[in-house]
Structure formats: C-alpha cells, structure tokens
Nucleic acid binder design. Structure first.
Lengths: 337, 337
DNA sequence: TTGAAAGCGGTACCAC
DNA sequence: GTGGTACCGCTTTCAA
C-alpha cells in the first residue's frame, strides 16, 4: 500500500486531522507541530491522495475545456489550441487542472453527464459546440462556465470574445491613414458571424469619416485560396477599382495577393491589403500582409481567470468580456518612398 | 443535495450495493431488479458521482497528456495538438478522459506529484518534456505510460514514434523512380535527431541502389525560410548540381522552392523537390511540393491504444512501436509530358 | 441473487 | 492548538 495520512500522523505523533490541517495551511497549528508533520511528510515521501481529497472536499480543482474537433484540425484551425494553451496556463498557475474534451458533434448528453457526474468545478466551452438547448441546460445547472465566442442566439450564459467590430474599425482606420478611401472587403458568407461583425466595424468607421462603401466592393464568398483569387479579379474589373482590400482571413489573403501579383498591381501603391489573423500565411505572402491579430492566447487566459472567479464567488456574474485586437503593420500597407 | 445511490436504492426498493452492481453491469443480478433499478435511475435523473467512484475503485479512468508548451505553439508547431487530438479520441472511445498538462520546462516535480497523487491511471508524455532522470522515475514508479518520440538516450520506458528512417527511404525511392539520382538533402543540425534519422534512411536507400551521395549535397542548417533559400543557392552553385532536393521541413522547402523559382529552375524537370511534413506550406508552394507525411493523429491514437493496454494488463510490455509515413505526390515531382 | 458492512483516504465540525 | 469522528458516495467482499 502507498503511504497515507495515517502513516504521517503516526510518525509525527499527531492525529490525522492535525496532518490534514498542516497540509491545508490551517492557521490554528503551532509551528512546532507544523515542523514535525512536514518532517514526517518528507521522510515518508508522502503525497496526498487526490481522489480522496476530491471526494471529501466536494470539489476537484478540475475544469473541462470543450470544443468541437475534427481530424487535421490542429493544422487548419490552430486558434482553438492556442486558446486552450492560454486557458491551461492560467488554470495551472492557479492550482487548477484541465480536462480536454474534443467532441465530434454538439453532444448535449456528454455535457450533461460531465456536469452531473460532479467531477469538474467548471467548464470552458468553445462556441463551436454550443446550442441553444445546451445554454439552457448550462444556465439551469448553475455550473460555473465561460463560453468562448459570442453565441449567435439569445442566451443567459457567460461568454467572452474578441471585439470583432473593433477589429474592423482598426483595419479601416489604418487604411484611411494611408489616405486610401476606396476600401473593398472580401469576407465569408452571411452566416459567418465573425465576418459580418468585422464588416460592420469597417462600415461604422467609414461612416464616421463620411465615406460610403460601394456594394460592389463587398464580396461574400467561401474561404478558400481560389475564392480569394476570384474575388480579387472581380474587384480589379469593377468600374470603380478599389485602392485597398480587407480580407477576412489568411486563405482569402493568399489568393488576393496572388491575383494582384498576377495582374502586376503594385502593393500597396495601387492597392493596399490588410487581412485578419496573422497565421499562417500573412507572413509569407509577397509582400507580407498587414494583419489585425487576435491574441487568442490571452483570450484563453481571460476565460480561465473569469471562470475561476465564478467558481470562487458563485454570485459573481458577467455577460461578456471583450479582448482587444492588435495591428501588425507589414509591407502590404507600408508607404513606399 | 443531489441525488445519490441511496435515493435510487430507496425508490427501487433494493440495497445500494445492488444499485452499484446494476450500474457496473454485474452479471449476478436478475433482469427484474435490473429493470426496477434502471427505472428509478431514469426517474430520478441520477448520474453516479465520479469523485466517489474514483476513490472507491482506486482508479480514475483518467489519463494525463504531457507536453512542453510555449506561446504561439499552436501556430508554429501544430503537430503536437494533432497527436493530442488522436490520443483524446482514442481515449474517450474507450471510456477514458484526458488531462492536458502543458509544461514550460522539463519539470520532474510536476510529473512526480502527478503520479504520486494517484489521480491518473496512466500518462502519455511527449518526448519534449523527457529527461533521463524522468525516465528513471517513470520506470521505478511503474506508472503505465507511453512516450511519444524516441528518447535520444538509453532508457527503460515504452515509446512510440514514426519510422523516420523509413520516411527517408520512401522519399528516396520516389525520387529514384523519376530516374533522378543526384539527390541533395537540406536538413537540421546534427543534434536534430529526426533529421538525422531521415538522412540515414536516404543514405540506406541510395546504397541499396549502389548510388553514393556527395558530401556537398548534404547541408545541415537551421530551419528557417532563409536557411532553405541559402542552402538551395549553394546547391545550385555546386560543381555537380543535384537534380533532386529533399527538404527536412516545410520552412526549408518554402525557401528552397523560392530560390529555384528565382533562378528560373524548372521544377521538377531540372530539379525535383520533396519535403517532409505536409503542413502548412507544402500545399501552397509554386509548384506544390510532394511530401512525406506523418499521420500524427494516428500516432496519438496508437499511443492511447497501447497505454490502455498497459493499464489493463500491467505485465504487457513493449519498447517501441513505429507508425508508417505516407507519400503525397504533387507537382514538384510530377513528370511533365 | 441480494444485502450488510467494511473500506477507499481524506475533510471539517465540534469538543476538549 | 489538537484530536475524535462523522461524513463524502461509491465499490467490493462475504454471508445469507
């Protein structure tokens, strides 16, 4: 058998409740016994049994991180893992551990069983697995939680997200500072909420500056290299050719820059380009593309921070928390002399 | 209070040990009572308390996945996460859960505490966190484990890895099938074990075919775009210019292809190119690069499978398990007509 | 086929 | 300050 508290108590010549108090840093123990107990712990090389503690203290210091997963996802959607990394770091620095749960579909039963089995103190849930029914369950169960990403339906859950509207504004502000006003946008289809929010931000910033955006300059498409290429060609053929293009993601950007190069358009002199997200292609386009970067690691950290806050103070409430995007300037918007 | 086994027992009119047996599928219970108990469970919406089960059964059905982590790692080193994905999938399909532990350095104390706290049944450890001291501890502790990646020192641990030697052979075989024999290799420095193993495979396959490799055609460098570019230029200037180049990774490949394009070398007619790993750049080079791909998801799955095997049969032993690389043929080695 | 009861290894309240 | 002890909620003999 492995050594238990009983052994420590015996060796130290105290009761097991005293040992427990020493381990948990209770203030009511004299320094002398603290030393005796710690000495015994060292000698016996004793480590508390976490399973027993979990049962006794009715909490596990264990948090679940839930996300939808697919094969190869680490390659084409690394952001989720960077969020997870931030979450885990913030959790472990506060004495919590993290269970990673990758779901193949929005599985309500798994979530239910997870919270009802009482093996976690809270959960961080990526918006990809969320359904309206699930939010209802989460709210009713009162499990401490943070959703990563704004749900696109009414809900009572606590969520945190990047400020996508602000991202759009930032991109636009930057382009306007180059004295370019004919801005085009290549983005996702209408149901792509993030793309829509960014577009809104772009429009807002433009109207602040009394500039309107031509409908022909807004292209909603899929998110492949090819789509980016074709959208760009379409923009080049528009009767009022834009002098700046904002791409909703790296793949569209890759296609866009390729098209501009093929048509011998000077970047940024004739057309400047800005993309959202910094990875993986913004760095290697020719020229490298200016990007609005989201610090997803930070997003994960904030999520954990808020979650632990909620675990500790059950009546602590928040509905939303926005993290801030960052501009990374590169040649695609750098004025040539 | 939440409902417990006691409640179920009372409602079903049986003892709690009977309830336990029903839940755990004991064969000694009559169908009639099984039905009664299950009915009560449904009615009360009862879920067993996992904390209590863990303590009572002295096992947690919980496995740790350990790896070294750094900020932005999901972007520049997604492979680890794809391995994790495979592991988690294989674990959960067998009723196990996974704790993700990202370490900032090779922290022996964390590992010790992890196994001594008895909260995991086993662990999958990425080679990035392994030290010789740690392998000693792991072996001594008898904790079921699988190391992902061959340790580069003598050890008694169980590990699993891709067959990097075979990868090198595969790349070489493919190039030889194009009737090109002057093969060059751009790889990592000497301490890069994986790169060395691949090079060995290349050499082995060549010597099988009675072909020797010029020392000038082996370049060991760092792993940046720039290094790939420069190495390629050096190869182009060699008195005996190679007609095929094997790059140890995607970034080197990116630089290599760029250099070949800048020097107007026809790919693959004048020089064919093969790279290791398929992501993220092999797909987008011009032309796209043929790659030797490692199915890291599968690697993760195998690791979990073996780990659970070991958990269930403590005297089941293995030292190594090799997964097989895959050739993805693209334009960079496709014969033009 | 079922149930009583002794753990599993701690925590935390309460008495001293 | 310290110790006795009743749990925490389940699993697992062992006897009936």
């Amino acid at each position: 058998m492995s050594t238990t508290m009983k052994d420590v108590a015996r060796i130290a010549g105290v009761s097991i409740s005293t040992v427990s108090k020493v381990i948990n840093g209770s203030p009511t123990i004299s320094q002398a016994t603290i030393d005796r107990v710690n000495h015994a712990i060292k000698n016996l090389n004793y480590t508390p049994n976490e399973r027993a503690r979990n049962l006794a203290r009715k909490s596990t210091k264990h948090v679940a991180f839930l996300t939808l997963v697919k094969r190869d996802m680490a390659f084409y959607n690394p952001h989720v893992f960077e969020i997870m990394l931030g979450s885990q770091q913030a959790l472990s620095s506060r004495g919590y551990t993290m269970e990673f749960i990758g779901l193949k579909f929005k599985n309500l039963d798994v979530v239910k069983n997870l919270v009802e089995s009482q093996k976690i103190d809270g959960m961080i849930v990526h918006a990809s697995v969320i359904t309206q029914e699930m939010t209802k369950f989460i709210v009713k169960s009162k499990i401490p939680h943070v959703i990563i990403g704004m749900p696109n339906f009414p809900n009572g859950v606590s969520w945190i997200d990047n400020d996508n509207n602000l991202s759009g504004q930032l991109a636009t502000k930057h382009i306007l500072s180059l004295e370019k006003e004919k801005i085009a946008f290549i983005g996702g289809k209408k149901n792509d909420l993030i793309s829509e929010l960014r577009l809104e931000g772009i429009k807002e910033e433009l109207s602040h500056n009394m500039i309107s955006m031509s409908d022909n300059h807004i292209i909603k498409t899929n998110s492949s290299f090819k789509d980016g290429y074709e959208a760009t060609v379409k923009l080049l053929n528009d009767k009022e050719r834009p002098n700046a293009i904002i791409c909703a993601n790296n793949l569209l950007d890759l296609g866009c820059i390729k098209a501009l190069n093929d048509y011998s358009i000077k970047i940024p002199d004739e057309i400047a380009v800005v993309t959202f997200d910094d990875y993986p292609y913004a760095i290697i386009t020719n020229p490298p593309t200016t990007a609005i970067n989201i610090d997803v690691y930070d997003l994960g950290q904030q999520a954990s921070r808020l979650l632990i806050e909620k675990i500790k103070k059950p009546n602590y409430h928040f509905q939303t928390y926005m993290t801030v995007p960052l501009l990374v300037t590169r040649e695609s918007t750098r004025k040539t002399i």
